[in-house]
Design a protein around this nucleic acid. Structure first.
Lengths: 339, 339
DNA sequence: TATGAACACGAAACCGATTTCGTAATACTT
DNA sequence: AAGTATTACGAAATCGGTTTCGTGTTCATA
């Protein structure tokens, strides 16, 4: 086992001081050509690589970005992470991923771990637990400490920081308008609890589109799913009690499950009922029929987030000016809608 | 912006030495009750948290685990990451995720970045590029340096280290046997290029099951997909030229696409053709018909990997004893097979 | 009263780098 | 020849902790 070589080793071996070695390896003008060549050759031979930790301690910069997401087995979040990674790597940054598991406590713990010097900045999406609780002190503290922070997708107005979101309202509006343009009259919305910022926005867009088209907003057409995973029963109750001709779902799973149930009831999709789902993931593409979906451009979001955060990290300026970047969603038409 | 407080600050404020503060905060017997209480109270008041980087430098341990995977927008890998995270967090470790993007070069670069002090050990799955190339020197070097390394799923026999895999042969065997038990005679295998270790193993299991049942192995029943993403054409060529009554696919996408194509040709699933796919992901569950699948237990795999690696990291012993943990896959029966 | 132990704390080395500043040796100037 | 400038390098501080060892007080013991 050959141990990692340090400046000290090189210095001792070559009978020079550590400072000389350090300077020689950075090609400093201070060091003579001869010495530099000797040291550089030796370093190359022994494959010297500076210790990141030591450099981090000295520079007070780690070249690490902390990404905290609620779940990693989740298409949208992984595309965002991929985008972050992609951009961050081009700038020489590593990505430390932590999962909050939708839990407030885990979110706090992870943030604290990372905030003690491990990272130069945060990119995060709030856990549902945190949004439900409405407690953002852990974020505020980190920002207070001067650590750059960027929220994406699941954000809050309560903390001042950079943000990247897609225009969820617009996404829902686009989708709803598409359904209306198809001639649908009884359009349902399947959503989650209201405390999730994105669900709220999507509902607003849905309602706005109906109103703009002089259609009545009926609460009975809105289904709020209790928790993920057990969609069957609520769907049965819902679709057995109201007659609909189009459904907008805030995620893929709801859409797929909804289509399945209606198909089992003999409905044809899209002839009898159209479906549109949020998040253009694998399920949408491979569903049967394939699902018209709203693409949230997760990868672009991740890249944008990383770019904004890294710029903030590397900018010296103290003045806290925060921007919110709003990406536009796009409607990807497939076979669950007409045309 | 209130700066992070350090031992030095506390020492100056309380007119004691840095060593005293350090010891007091660790509740050392050396320090008097009075002084300890004073220092601890002060530290709590100002929310002192030691700097991870400094501790890492001193201890030569970072409490970080590097995870390198080929892709993150991939159900199986994310479940593994989740398992790693889950176990690692209970032990106070962070997870640094890097993506090789199936590229040899990115794999090398990421490993080198992390190997210079950023992590205490690696958990990784080889990129397809690396497996194709067959060059494992970057792994060997890292191991040479004494950094614990664990390979999972996509492994190689060329490097000596801990490994966690599922018994891919057994998975394929189980699945094939299931199809045979159903009375299928013309069983196809849809796989990828042979250089992926897992595909090779699965093919072996497939062949072994046929042989054990005294069935002929016919090369024409084996379809090797060129690259992911463009399955339509190869499927068309394949299914139009050979008549099959069952299909085993090495991933979900192949299975879903295959089912779709055969359905479009008027075949009924599972009556006319049965399907089984590897990796029990979202697609399997929500496919139509839902897909009988081989569960690779990604999360368990991640947990097992993290456990083995962390134990290695924390054990002092020099002797390099490596184990390979083989998890057993399970067949999850759904509607794409009979019964 | 001298001696040893126990107590409570500080100085300093160390982890592995970077960087400022000081200085010996040489070269150049007048 | 004396003074100045340049070259080439080393000592030491620093980042923020941990840890070993040394030491001044106080107390009890012979």
């Amino acid at each position: 086992m050959k141990q990692k070589i340090t400046l000290k080793h090189i210095a001792k071996e070559l009978q020079v001081s550590i400072s000389t070695v350090s300077k020689a390896l950075k090609n400093s003008e201070e060091i003579s050509r001869d010495t530099k060549e000797k040291i550089q050759a030796f370093a190359k031979l022994y494959n010297y690589k500076p210790n990141n930790i030591a450099i981090s301690l000295k520079n007070k910069r780690t070249k690490n970005i902390g990404v905290i997401i609620p779940d990693i087995v989740h298409h949208f979040f992984t595309t965002v992470v991929r985008g972050v990674e992609k951009y961050a790597n081009t700038k020489g940054y590593n990505v430390i991923v932590c999962l909050s598991d939708e839990s407030f406590d885990k979110e706090v713990i992870n943030m604290e771990m990372l905030a003690n010097g491990s990272i130069d900045g945060f990119i995060m999406s709030l856990s549902s637990d945190t949004q439900l609780k409405g407690d953002y002190n852990h974020l505020k503290e980190v920002i207070e400490q001067g650590i750059p922070m960027l929220l994406f997708d699941r954000i809050t107005n309560e903390v001042d920081c950079d943000k990247v979101i897609i225009d969820d309202q617009m996404g829902a509006y686009l989708a709803t308008q598409k359904l209306i343009d198809e001639g649908r009259k009884k359009i349902a919305l399947v959503t989650t609890e209201d405390y999730l910022s994105v669900s709220r926005e999507r509902k607003t867009g849905f309602v706005r589109a109906l109103k703009d088209n002089h259609m009545e907003v009926q609460e009975q057409y809105i289904l709020q799913m209790p928790t993920m995973g057990m969609e069957e029963k609520p769907f049965k109750n819902f679709f057995d009690s109201v007659e609909v001709d189009a459904v907008l779902c805030v995620n893929e799973i709801f859409a797929i499950s909804g289509m399945r149930y209606l198909k089992s009831k003999g409905k044809r999709i899209p002839e009898d009922v159209s479906f549109i789902g949020f998040t253009d993931g694998l399920l949408s593409k491979y569903a049967n029929p394939s699902l018209t979906a709203i693409d949230q451009h997760g990868e672009k979001m991740g890249e944008a987030a990383a770019e904004i955060l890294i710029e903030k990290i590397e900018s010296e300026l103290e003045e806290p000016s925060f921007k919110t970047k709003i990406l536009s969603p796009t409607l990807i038409e497939r076979d669950s809608t007409i045309n």
